[in-house]
Structure formats: structure tokens, C-alpha cells
Design a protein around this nucleic acid. Sequence first.
DNA 1: GGCAGAAGCTGAGATAGCGTCAGATCGGTC
DNA 2: GACCGATCTGACGCTATCTCAGCTTCTGCC
Lengths: 218, 218
Amino acid sequence: MTSTGQAGPVVDQNGRPLGPRALRTRSRLLEATRRLLDERPLRDVAVVDIARRAGTSPATFYQYFKGPEEAILELAARAADEMPGVLEELRGLAPGPGALPAARAFVRAFIAHWDRHRAVLLVRNLAAESGDRRFARVRRRALGPLLERLAALTAEGQRSGNVSRHLNPHAGGAALASIVERLSAYHRELEPTGVSLEDLVETTARILVQVATGTPPD
Amino acid sequence: MTSTGQAGPVVDQNGRPLGPRALRTRSRLLEATRRLLDERPLRDVAVVDIARRAGTSPATFYQYFKGPEEAILELAARAADEMPGVLEELRGLAPGPGALPAARAFVRAFIAHWDRHRAVLLVRNLAAESGDRRFARVRRRALGPLLERLAALTAEGQRSGNVSRHLNPHAGGAALASIVERLSAYHRELEPTGVSLEDLVETTARILVQVATGTPPD
DNA sequence: GGCAGAAGCTGAGATAGCGTCAGATCGGTC
DNA sequence: GACCGATCTGACGCTATCTCAGCTTCTGCC
């Protein structure tokens, strides 16, 4: 199974499975797309550019992808494959003294993940929010487990009486995930205003712990 | 002063000020852009389409705008002009019993604002996050006052001892604004998973109050 | 080594939107 | 009813998309 979630081997636009040479060409095209997207907005990334940078021709690109978007969809899927590792950091996030360090480590890992894949994730989010099902699916695959984890934590906090019954756990999970994702996307714009990355990590981690477990650290 | 923040009257691409007929044509073009953007992603909105829908020609469009993006920039600036009204709702958000209703009203107003301008705001955010200064500026103009308000509230909470000293007020403000903005953008995708708009409003409002004032409502 | 067939690649071309400019049209004025 | 500035557009050259038919390269077989 590929990282896009399709079953079976990688195929070209006609459904034919790819041999080793073709796979290498396809990889070069993906890598070229990734690099170009780091340099300029999607609108300015032409298929010709991708092909040239990959040392091949536009026609070859179209053999493997419907267009730049489809290549980005696959890059987003690959990024999603990294999420389990990032979520690992959340293991220690349970009421108690280990909560804050775990939250910090998680926030740091999440931001690093975003910094690695910023351009791709921005396109993913725009496409998903604009109604593109494929991108919405990849996004859900990446963030769903985070939402669930935070929701479960909130629900647990409610059971133990530390978190208000008036919160909806899923909405709370979504809200907390929003902070982490949004600030990851934005921290570069925030830093010039005097908020350091460490301020962001510390503040976000503390909000996570406070809201999800109901017990403010300190 | 126009809503883009430029001084003086509206001008065309050659800097010539517009007469009443031209202003009407320009307005039709803006409205057509808005409507098309609600129907499909920016990538699929051609200048030809905008012109046709406005009952004019592509050449006319180029007389007033460099391209679709510039039209959207102006639409985003107009949306930003609505923000003071939305922020009005925040007036009552101070420690005390009025905090929760004020927070609810604010969250509702903010979501309604997003629902009105969703397509434009998505493009604005993508462009801003991709490094486009003009869009970043409009975005700051819209959200800056919200950030400041929430940061001030948090700082006040710290002074009165209700909010942890370890939070950075500006980071906290940004985090809370993130929730509101992100969930406004996302609530449509969340609803199918069983989280109602009211759940979202209630949960977000409570998190706002709890984090910013340090006193959980209840 | 040489050859057949499969695998992979691309040149060339039809199509479509972009952005410009010279000139047509409109609408008010005398 | 002729003029004039304001406004609009037809037409054109350009660039990028996307598609084939056919070319090149590889592989295994004799």
C-alpha cells in the first residue's frame, strides 16, 4: 500500500504498474515539485519547471501525475506518514507532573514537522478547506489521531471532575489542535513581533495541559 | 481613503482616478470575482470568466486590476473593515459573570463573518502564509486588534494572579485567536463528525474565558 | 553479439487563457 | 450635432497545458 492509501503498486496515468526506472523518474519529479514549492507559490510552479528540474520533459510528468496538485497530494500523504512519530511525544500527556514536559516536546515536534513541510501543508489545507475531498482525507488521516487523543484526554478530565461538563470533548480537541497547527503555520510571522519560538512552545504547552486535563501546571 | 488603506480616490492601472461609470464597472468586476470564488477554487477562476460574468471584457478587467489576486486583495480589505463590528462583542469580556455570554456572542459573530467571506479569507490566509506582504498586511489589520485585546486580557489576568506567569500574553492571545479563526474555517468539516456549531461556540467561548481570565466559568 | 519486445521518454501540435494596445464607443457639453 | 475626455473592447502575440504517435533504451533470449 502506498502512502496515498491506494492499494497495490504505484501506477501511471493509464493504470500500468511502474518498473524501477519509472519509479526513479517519478521520485525525481516529486522531489522537484517539493523544492519548487518551497521557492514560490503553487500558482507560479509550472509543469515545465518541474520537468526541467527533474531533468525530464513535461510529457513525462503527465505520464505519472494529472497535474502539480496530484504530485502535492502525494507529498502531503508522505508528510502524513510522519505524524505517528510526532504523536508519540503525546504519550506522557496525562494528568500529573509529566504532562508539561510531554506537551512541550509534542509542540516542538509538531512545529518541526510543519517547518519541514510548510509549503505542502499550506496547499493541503487550502485545498481541503476549499472542498477538495482528496486533500481533506489526507488531512484527516494526519490530524485525526491528534484530535482523538486530545478529545479522550478532555473526556477523562471531565470524568475526574477537573474539566467542565459544558465542554464538548471533540470540540475541545479540535480547538487545541487548532492552536498547535495554526501557531506552527504562523510562528514565523509572530517572531518579528517579539514572541520567540520558546514563548510559543511554552504557552501552547501550558494551554494544552490546562484545558485538556483541567489542572494548570505550575 | 479606500479600504485597502491607500490614500486618495480609486484609480485604474495607469493611476487615473475613476469616474462614476468606471466605479460601477469596477464594482461589478469585484462582485463577479467574489461570486466565482465561492463556486470554485482560485486556480479555476479565469479573468475571462470574471469579465463575462460582470458583462464586460477581459481588457476592462485589466484596466482596474493587475489580476484576480488584486481583486481578491481588495475584497479581503473590505472584509477586514467588518472586523471592528465583530470585535465590539468582545467589550464585555472581562473577569466576571458577563464574560461567558460576551465570549459566546463574539465567537458567533466571528464565525458568521467567516461564513460570509470564507473563500476570500482562505485565499488571504494562504497568500499571507506564503509570504505575500500585501495579504499579510490586510490580515494583520483584521486580526491585530483581536490579538491585542486577548493579550491585554491575559496580561491583566496575570497581574491579578489568576493566570500563570509562565504564559507569554502575546503568545496566549495568538493561541486563542488561532482557535477562533481555525474553527471558523473548519466548522463545516467538523459538523459531519457530530460536533454541532453550538458545541463549538460553547466550547470555544469557555476556553477563551478560562485561558484569558484564568477563572473558569461555571 | 544481435535481435525482439517491453518499458520509458519526448517532440510537436492543438487548445486556451494571459495581458496589451490601438482604436471604437459612450455620454455629457456647448 | 459636433466635440472631447472617459471608458470599453477586438484582436493579437505569447506562454503553458495536455496529448499522442513515434523514438530511444533496456532486458532477456538465442
